[in-house]
Simulated assay, not measured.
Amino acid sequence: MGEKPSMPKESSRHESKKPFKMPPMPHMPMKDMYKHIMPTMPHRHVKEPYMYQHLLELKGRRVEVATQCKTVKGKLKAVFPDHVLVEMDRREYHIRLKTICFVSPLLDP
């Protein structure tokens, strides 16, 4: 009457079984593991996408870039997610996007 239900006993067959082990895999660094599936792309986060797009359209043209401390007139050589490269009088100026007040295209001479 007062017997407790007993748990089923595991057979000795399960005790002799070895735990599952993964088969050996060729060494491949994690960064190269999915290279064949998806090519690596640099992570580019643009904080001002409209200004960035407008600057890309002006690339290669002469522009006037006004910052908080100076105005630079020259050729817009390159546009990066956080800055632009303007060449003026054979000198290159790297100007951060967040310091730009305005950009205006200049008429080519």
Rank of each mutant, 00 (worst) to 15 (best):
P23V: 00
F20W: 08
Y50F: 14
K47G: 00
V79H: 02
V65K: 02
K21H: 06
Y50V: 15
E57L: 12
K17T: 11
Q53N: 09
D32T: 01
V84E: 01
Y93N: 05
K4Q: 15
D108Y: 08
K47E: 10
S11A: 11
R44N: 13
K75P: 00
P105W: 05
K98R: 15
V84H: 08
A66C: 07
D32H: 01
K77F: 07
T99S: 14
M33E: 04
L97K: 07
S11Y: 09
V65F: 03
M22Q: 01
P23I: 00
P8V: 09
M7E: 13
I37M: 12
M88F: 08
E92L: 06
L58K: 11
P26K: 00
K4N: 15
R61M: 12
P19I: 06
L107N: 06
P39M: 03
E57M: 13
S11K: 10
S16F: 07
P39W: 02
L107E: 10
D108K: 09
P26D: 01
R90E: 12
D82E: 14
M30P: 07
P29H: 03
P39D: 03
P24L: 04
P81S: 09
S11T: 09
C69V: 14
H36C: 02
V72Q: 07
P81N: 08
K9Y: 06
D108V: 02
V65I: 10
P24I: 06
M7P: 04
G2R: 12
V63L: 02
E10F: 12
P39V: 08
P39Q: 02
F80P: 01
V79Y: 02
F20M: 02
C101T: 13
T99Q: 10
K17I: 14
S104A: 12
K18M: 10
K47Q: 09
V63W: 01
F20I: 05
K59T: 13
P49T: 06
K21S: 04
I100V: 10
M1K: 07
T40P: 03
S16D: 14
P39F: 03
L56W: 03
K73F: 03
M38Y: 15
E48S: 12
H83A: 03
Y50A: 13
M33Y: 01
R61G: 08
P29S: 04
D89Y: 13
H43W: 12
S12Y: 05
K73E: 11
V84S: 06
T71W: 07
A66N: 08
M33R: 04
P29T: 00
C101L: 15
P8N: 10
E57P: 02
L56A: 10
L76C: 01
A78P: 00
C69G: 10
E48Q: 15
V86S: 03
M25L: 14
V86Q: 02
H94T: 13
P109Y: 12
R61T: 14
M51Y: 04
G74S: 07
V46S: 03
P5G: 04
V103D: 03
V46W: 01
K77E: 15
